[in-house]
């Protein structure tokens, strides 16, 4: 049942050392403010699940929160490498990290299976792909009807799903708009959940009949964090900060520079810092 709380309370209540976390958002609605709080509370030994680790997991890995990462594309989109992810895999800094690597199709299907209560996902994939050799969680099954061999991967059921959304109603229902990624699947498949939102409204009367909504009885904690997806974006509220994604390349390149930046901007920061990333006017003009 949905419970409104502060970010400190939500993370303290939901996230434990050694948990498997799925902090999702496909480029859009990435829950950065929540990740900062997980780092401030010093969680370690986490399994970090995300299709695209992006800056959010680059930061958490570099701060030593993770012992394992499950992903399908680990770059800084359009910019280059995630230097902290690379340093962890290539040089075991700040600690060795286990890798479970998939394709996007596999992870999307695995989230879908997790939400559907199935033990695994079945799809036509990985043919001729070498990940099959290095990832023991990629297996094959034979269709009992056609005889076709298909790929199978385990369902994703995280201990905690953490996502950012545009709106929560006062009752605790959640509304997502725009690129909706695998957020709904991640939350429905997880044991516990934290949803940060741009705003809390009376109801969703102005949304269409097919809006993407998670009912309050599927939600754990809800936290009001305006701007909480920055440098990712919230459709209808603020744009992706592409300039910051480019700047991150230099910030994360060097270990000491990275730690200094994190200390100043994250470890000494708070959830309220994110509000400045959100323009005063809530409706951005369309180009």
């Amino acid at each position: 049942m949905a419970e409104f709380s502060t970010l400190e309370e939500a993370v303290a209540a939901c996230v434990r050392d050694g948990d498997a976390l799925a902090m999702e958002g496909f480029t859009h609605l990435i829950p950065h403010a929540a990740a900062h709080e997980v780092m401030r509370q010093g969680r370690t030994g986490l399994t970090l699940i995300r299709m695209t680790p992006d800056i959010i997991y680059d930061q958490m890995i570099g701060m030593g929160c993770a012992s394992r990462v499950v992903f399908s594309w680990g770059g800084n989109p359009g910019v280059g490498s995630l230097h902290r992810l690379r340093d962890a895999i290539e040089q075991s800094w700040p600690n060795p990290i286990g890798v479970e690597e998939h394709s996007h199709a596999a992870m999307a299907n695995a989230y879908d299976a997790g939400a559907a209560g199935l033990p695994c996902a079945v799809f036509r994939g990985y043919r001729g792909a070498e990940l099959v050799r290095v990832n023991p969680n990629i297996k094959a099954v034979v269709c009992p009807f056609s005889g076709e061999e298909l790929a199978a991967v385990p369902a994703i059921n995280a201990d905690v799903a953490v996502v950012h959304a545009q709106k929560a109603s006062k009752k605790g229902d959640i509304l997502f708009e725009g690129i909706v990624g695998v957020q709904k699947e991640a939350v429905l498949g997880a044991k516990r959940s934290i949803i940060t939102v741009e705003e809390i409204v009376d109801d969703f009367a102005d949304s269409g009949p097919n809006a993407v909504i998670l009912p309050h009885w599927t939600i754990g904690h809800i936290v009001h964090v305006p701007g909480g997806a920055h440098p990712s974006y919230a459709h209808g509220y603020y744009d992706r900060d592409n300039a910051f994604y480019k700047e991150w390349d230099a910030i994360a390149k060097d270990r000491d520079g990275f730690r200094a930046w994190m200390e100043e901007h994250v470890m000494q920061g708070s959830a309220e810092d994110f509000a400045r990333h959100r323009p005063k006017r809530t409706k951005r003009k369309r180009r």
């Binding site: 496909f26 480029t27 859009h28 299709m51 989109p77 359009g78 910019v79 996007h104 199709a105 999307a108 299907n109 989230y111 879908d112 799809f123 725009g178 690129i179 909706v180 990624g181 695998v182 709904k184 699947e185 993407v212 974006y233 459709h235 744009d239 992706r240 592409n242 994604y245 369309r286 180009r287």
Partner: peptide, 25 residues
């Protein structure tokens, strides 16, 4: 041109936007 595969520009100018599992399936 989008910098990332999921820039808002892509969604705002699309005919429709579907969930990622649906896209791949």
């Amino acid at each position: 041109l989008p910098l990332s595969i999921g820039d808002g520009e892509l969604c705002e100018t699309a005919l429709t936007t579907v969930p990622v599992p649906e896209m791949f399936r």
